[in-house]
Design a protein around this nucleic acid. Structure first.
Length: 410
DNA sequence: CATGGGCTAAACAAGG
DNA sequence: GCCTTGTTTAGCCCAT
């Protein structure tokens, strides 16, 4: 598939130590302390790779993760909230939890973390960065310049980085089928450049990419919960490596998408509070020219029928193929609002390891038949995802820490 | 080892 | 002419 990339830009520095760390910790976290029922209630939790059995299934439990990990990590303390600087680095907190004597110098540690955050790349791929930026915008569409601005604002790393990252951003926007140009007449009326928005049909795949960045890494923190999960209040801010988010930031968008997938909870991000009606086929520049369907999309089309969802990219394939084919069948542009919404539902269900053979008849499937319990489950899933933004980043920071530690040893 | 994902760099065109 | 934006290509590294 293609466009979605759930990999971090700094993967080159963080990944090598990941596997051994994960395997090393897996033995620790194998203790079955995770509540099972919540796993079933979270569509997202079930989407993680569970091929290795019950142990892994327990590890993918979202509620266990955020209810325990977030208790251990200071996600959004008062200091962090006021500073608003991207200083979350799980290393410090992780070590604080490991060691008894490190809690006295948290202020200096935070300053050190802030310095680190300026040096280290954010744990998101450019696709996800763009996705976050766009989803955070009120109109769910941004010009390139504002995408730059958002990235700079949330990831100060790039302010000191060479300008090549802007090229990468543009490259992603152009090449990644997840992003679409908005018709100038409907969007930015003056000035050059177009507005860019997230293709609603690819949104679930972006979610999954984001998710898959979250979950596997969370294994690194699979320490048995020291205390039973409590209904602690969720963090208000999530401080990631290299960036800071309010809870309402990026994963609020993600959560909103999950909520969108819930029957009766549709909030069209492109229509909600902006003038753009992206559900209209004429509101988005979509070319049927096969020439434009290059690279990612064409690869996606080629692979979509054969590959399993072993990666976030392949998962995007699943969605992209269907849409690409439908596009080639003549339906240019966005699906109707209902179509994309239905597709979202299907995507969420597919991530829930529903047998892939099931294909809902789009035109016949009842919409808006709200089952309250299902609705609540989806809401919970959205909430879980909110928390996971911090958790995954915690693990990224941890992985980075472990890696650097090993390098230092060498 | 092959394949694919992701990043980076570069060139080029178009428009302001 | 310069800058920004958008597209395209190529190459590299890394994980699977």
């Amino acid at each position: 598939m293609g466009p979605i990339i759930g990999m971090s830009p700094d993967k080159k520095t963080e990944i090598p130590g990941m596997q051994e760390e994960r395997t090393g910790l897996r033995g620790v976290c194998g203790v079955g302390t995770l509540p099972e029922a919540e796993c079933a209630s979270s569509p997202l939790a079930t989407s993680v790779d569970r091929a290795s059995g019950a142990e892994d299934e327990e590890l993918t439990n979202l509620n266990w993760l955020h209810e325990n990990l977030l208790q251990n990590f200071t996600l959004g303390g008062p200091e962090a909230q006021t500073s608003g600087s991207p200083l979350f680095d799980i290393e410090g907190d992780y070590k604080q939890n490991q060691g008894p004597s490190s809690s006295s110098s948290s202020l200096s540690q935070n300053r050190g973390r802030e310095r680190d955050s300026l040096k280290s790349k954010p744990p998101f791929s450019f696709s996800l960065l763009i996705y976050m930026a766009i989803e955070q915008s009120p109109s769910k569409s941004l010009p390139v310049k504002e995408i730059y601005g958002w990235i700079l604002e949330h990831f100060p790393y790039f302010s000191n980085a060479p300008t090549g990252w802007k090229n990468s951003v543009r490259h992603n926007l152009s090449l990644n089928k997840c992003f679409r140009k908005v018709d100038k007449s409907l969007g930015k009326a003056n000035g050059k450049g177009s507005l860019w928005c997230v293709d609603p049909e690819y949104r679930p795949n972006l979610i999954q990419a984001l998710k898959k960045q979250h979950f596997p890494a969370a294994h690194a923190f699979c320490t048995p919960p020291a205390s039973p999960p409590s209904a602690s209040s969720p963090p208000r801010h999530l401080f990631l490596q290299g960036c800071s988010f309010k809870e309402s930031d990026i994963d609020a968008a993600t959560a909103m998408m999950l909520l969108n997938s819930a029957p009766g909870h549709h909030v069209d991000p492109c229509n909600s509070d902006g003038p753009l009606d992206l559900s209209r086929p004429d509101s988005v520049l979509v070319s049927s020219d096969p020439k434009q369907d290059h690279n990612y999309s064409s690869a996606a089309l080629q692979r979509c029928s054969s590959r399993s969802s072993s990666s976030s990219l392949s998962s995007l394939d699943e969605g992209g193929c269907e849409r690409s084919q439908s596009r080639r069948a003549g339906s240019e542009g966005f699906h109707s609002d209902e179509d994309s919404d239905l597709w979202d539902e299907r995507a969420v269900q597919q991530t829930s390891r529903r047998p892939p053979a099931i294909k809902w008849p789009i035109s016949k499937r009842p919409r808006r038949e709200v089952k309250p319990e299902l609705d609540e489950e989806l809401k919970e899933a959205a909430g879980s995802l909110l928390h996971l933004a911090g958790i995954r980043s915690c693990t990224e920071g941890s992985k980075r820490t472990v890696k650097s530690t090993k390098l230092n040893r060498k």
